[in-house]
Amino acid sequence: MSERRGQALTALKAAFPHTLPILTGFLVLGTAHGVLMSAAGFAWWWPLLTSVVIFGGSLEFVATSLLQAPFAPLQSLLTGLLVQARHLFYGIAMLERYKDMGRKKPYMIFSLCDETFSINCTVDVPEGVDRELFMFFVGLLDQSYWVVGSLLGGLLGDFIPFDTTGMDFAMTAMFIVIALEQWLKDDRHFSALSGLLCSLAALMIFGQDSFLIPAMALILAALLLGRGIYGGEGNAPGGDGSAPGGDGSAPGGEGNAPGGDGSAPVMEGSASGGEEARS
């Protein structure tokens, strides 16, 4: 019993420093979310509720405007799916890492937001620390930062003692650092370049409110078409070494149709827009 507790404490201590950027980012953004809801006339428990049960920053900002509009269940569902579709990518990328999570698995999948994904997908868990517990605490800490931020924002309303303008850049900076690390780890750079160029192209064509789905379709197409570039097993960029190395067979030989044409539906203009975190 006490050994289990010691293990948990070690994992918590190891996980905490990795979540510090999220702590800053989430307290600011979460508070902004709470302030926004309270300014829109929602009681203090509303931001608390959405951050506990939805736990998806972008969608929660969008939700504030959806909740003020006339009741539109189908539109809400479509908006939710569009804003959150990128999580499908995270799930696919985490199939291996979350494979042995046991009883913690449902919570791990539930809490797989952008930021938790970014840590758990890339981190090397230190020697002697329980991998599963480490990743569990990353998810739990991240969600608690977000919940506390939202609650604070809901309670404080628009009374914030100092100028936080620009502080939300912490999140952007974190993604820049991770993207850079991924770039350095993969000497072929094909995946990173696909992500960058497909997203920029989609952004220019579809505009900031609806470019994410077309961008993801383009990325999938590019990666499937460029399969030869990452030919052998174990050459994965940013890989965690868990790739099955047993079969040395080249990809492309299997019977699965590549389906390189954008299989994701391209829906324009239906998402009601990006969140505005800056005030």
């Binding site: 990128r86 990518f89 995270y90 696919i92 990328a93 985490m94 199939l95 291996e96 952008d114 970014s118 997908c121 890339t122 952007t172 993604f175 820049i176 991770i178 993207a179 991924q182 770039w183 780890k185 993969d186 750079h189 094909f190 995946s191 990173a192 370049l193 696909s194 992500g195 960058l196 497909c198 997203s199 920029l200 952004l203 994410l212 961008a215 993801m216 990325i219 999938l220 590019a222 990666l223 499937l224 399969r227 990452y230 994965a236 960029p237 940013g238 890989g239 790739a243 990809p251």
Partner: peptide, 16 residues
């Protein structure tokens, strides 16, 4: 394959 090669693309996409 996608699970292995997606991460760099995802993070570039998230920066954008």
């Amino acid at each position: 394959y996608l699970g292995r090669v997606l991460p760099p693309a995802i993070f570039s996409m998230l920066v954008v």
